[in-house]
Design a protein around this nucleic acid. Structure first.
Length: 586
RNA sequence: GGCCCCGUCGUCUAGCCUGGUCCAGGACACCACCCUUUCACGGUGGUGACAUGGGUUCGAAUCCCAUCGGGGUCACCA
């Protein structure tokens, strides 16, 4: 630890626990911490809170870092993330305040635990979790507030050597903080000072029986030692904060002897689903379960046993899942794949997999609980901006206090606009990248298109796709082989066969014209269609356009015919028309 | 239940701190119309909110109080 932790530099941190993917709400927290550091010329730290040994994993930590990097939220200090592509690594430890995994900081925590115990501000306690559980339940049953009862031999400010010795001998114990009997004030830049009356805090655990510090303790130690000046986090942490403040007042640094400082807090509004429930990965299990139950009701031949077989999972596990005994993500995902249903996006990786652009997510997230308070030139609220803008304008004073609901429609609209703003070539590049990662089979098919075809296709896809995944549907015609796509019976009947095969006759006639279209561009093709329609005295080109569309794509719906045929190429276009004529008779 | 936080259109919000320019503005969604070769895109217009009740004031979305409503938290999880 060095003096830089005491400089005027603002330091923020995002401190996820590596127990899963990065939640979309966590991404917002990270974004705000990042933005505040950037705005104030400070540092943004990533710290991994892996003190829950049972649930933490390294893969999870890595995944969280990759999701952050994908969003463009890069940490100045923290674990080093090296991209495969050889871009510069993110993270590092220029101030020497690491390591950034809490499990690697045990010695530090223990040192502070002991200092607290010796100062009579903490003490070992020997009750088991079960003992306390009984008391807690009794209190709840009696409609009383449960508070841990401080043992009679524990006195504030007095080192309890007996207990310490007993603990050092190896008796199972936890260490509890000796809560002060005084008012605690949490300095909050969003909510204003939040005051807690004396006696509201009880003696909470700061070191678990397994020797790991609790979240509350580790946070306080690390924030001080890493020089964190501003703690921005979700409001669910507000009720815990008095504990942190109380500890900060009791602690002194073992290196300099200086008292711990209380950082400024900013508790941000929570994000919920539209129905007011928490956004949780359990939502995925809920949807999968409901869909599966509906499917089983519709088709009584589906049994847990047969389903377990087709899904490739254990029958007991599936039965448990259906009964809501477990919310196994893997089961939910298999069910979704089998039933072809979409699971709600909850984690950053979900949005990524479904083809959202990081810029759109960042923009949308920024607006959940914050806004720049600026107007556009025509007087509307400014709400479209990029990360650089946020880094330039972010401001704690403009964080809202009220909880927000996550409106997927609006996100979708933001994403659609972000896609629309891309050039066709840029869209093509991103789409192909996305396909390679998430739809490799389709990527292989799309790779057969020339760069020129792909760009024309991309131009046609852009306005029809709110996400990269959305583009799959309008692109289907171009990815299928000339004799692979199927004809939609209703569309064929309506556009080709009805009215004494009027559409088919026009199609055959127009087919003869196609040879002369030169060059084979969207514009020239469209001109040929228009000219033909005019010549035939049609009120609009629909009379020939629809038969053509059905012949070329099999459906009555597709991108513009000029683009469609240009993407297919002249040879394929003719082949497709011929196949249609053969299939349905001239 | 205790403690704490919050409350403007269905949703995200501007306005609130520094009362009057607000019979409350924007965006998404929705509806209608226009454009149109289908589906989209785009354009124009529209429906739609100050939770309720008391104060204070010449005047309140804005200040105060109460009520109601929503949320968070009360772990050897973070």
């Amino acid at each position: 630890m060095n003096d830089s932790t005491h400089s005027g530099l603002t330091v923020t941190r995002f401190a996820p626990s590596p127990t899963g993917h990065l939640h979309i709400g966590g991404a917002r927290t990270a974004l705000f911490c990042w933005a505040f550091a950037k705005r104030t010329g400070g540092k943004f730290i990533l710290r991994i809170e892996d003190t829950d040994l049972a649930r933490s994993s390294e893969e999870s930590a890595r995944g969280i870092m990759e999701d952050l990097a994908w969003l463009g939220i890069e940490w100045d200090e923290g674990p080093v993330l090296r991209h495969l592509g050889g871009q510069r690594p993110i993270g590092g430890d220029p101030r020497h305040v690491g390591p950034f995994f809490q499990a690697q900081r045990l010695a530090l925590y223990n040192q502070y635990i002991e200092s607290l115990v010796r100062a009579g501000r903490a003490y070992p306690a020997f009750e088991t979790g079960d003992d306390l559980e009984v008391k807690r339940k009794a209190a709840t049953a009696a409609k009383k507030t449960y508070r841990y009862e401080r043992p009679a031999d524990v006195q504030p400010g007095v080192f309890n050597e007996d207990r310490w010795q007993q603990a050092c001998r190896g008796d199972a114990h936890v260490v509890r903080f000796l809560a002060p009997h005084e008012q605690i004030v949490v300095p909050d830049q969003v909510l204003g000072d939040v005051k807690i009356a004396p006696g509201e805090l009880d003696d909470f655990v700061i070191r678990k029986a397994d020797g790991m510090p609790t979240y509350h303790f580790a946070v306080v130690i690390d924030d001080e030692l890493m020089g964190v000046t501003h703690v921005l986090r979700a409001q669910e942490h507000l009720a815990n904060t008095p504990r942190h403040v109380a500890m900060q007042k009791a602690l002194r640094r073992t290196d300099t002897g200086a008292p711990f400082r209380t950082p400024l807090y900013g508790h941000m509004p929570l994000i919920f689903n539209m129905d007011g429930s928490k956004m949780s990965k359990r939502d995925k299990a809920k949807i999968a379960r409901a869909s599966l139950k509906a499917a089983m009701q519709k088709d009584p031949s589906l049994t847990p046993a047969s389903l377990a077989m087709t899904l490739g999972i254990d029958e007991a596990a599936l039965t448990g899942f259906i009964a809501a005994d477990n919310d196994a993500l893997d089961t939910a995902e298999r069910i979704a794949r089998h039933l072809k249903i979409a699971l709600p996006e909850i984690e950053v990786s979900d949005f990524r997999g479904n083809g959202y652009l990081p810029g759109a997510i960042v923009n949308f997230l920024a607006l959940l609980g914050w806004n720049p308070g600026l107007k556009t030139q025509d007087g509307k609220d400014l709400e479209k901006f990029d990360a650089a803008f946020i880094a330039d304008h972010f401001d704690l004073a403009r964080i809202g206090k009220a909880n927000a609901k996550f409106d997927r429609n609006k996100l979708l609209s933001f994403n659609a606009e972000a896609i629309g703003a891309l050039t066709a070539a840029e869209f093509a590049r991103r789409w192909m990248e996305w396909l390679a990662e998430f739809e490799p089979e389709i990527h292989a098919k799309a790779s057969r298109l020339s760069a020129e075809q792909l760009t024309i296709l991309a131009g046609a896809l852009k306005p029809r796709a709110k996400t990269l995944r959305d583009a799959l549907r309008p692109a289907a015609f171009a990815l299928a082989g000339d004799d692979e796509y199927t004809f939609d019976a209703a569309a064929v009947e309506k556009n080709l066969l009805s009215a004494d095969r009027a559409g088919m006759k026009l199609l055959v006639e127009f087919r003869g014209r196609l040879d002369t279209v030169e060059p084979w561009t969207p514009e020239a093709i469209t001109a040929a269609i228009d000219a033909f329609a005019k010549e035939k005295g049609m009120p609009n080109p629909g009379g020939i356009a629809q038969p053509l569309r059905v012949a070329l794509t099999g459906a009555g719906v597709s991108p513009g015919l000029g683009e469609t045929m240009a993407v297919l190429g002249k040879a394929s276009s003719l082949r497709r028309i011929d196949r249609c004529v053969q299939t349905h008779g001239a």
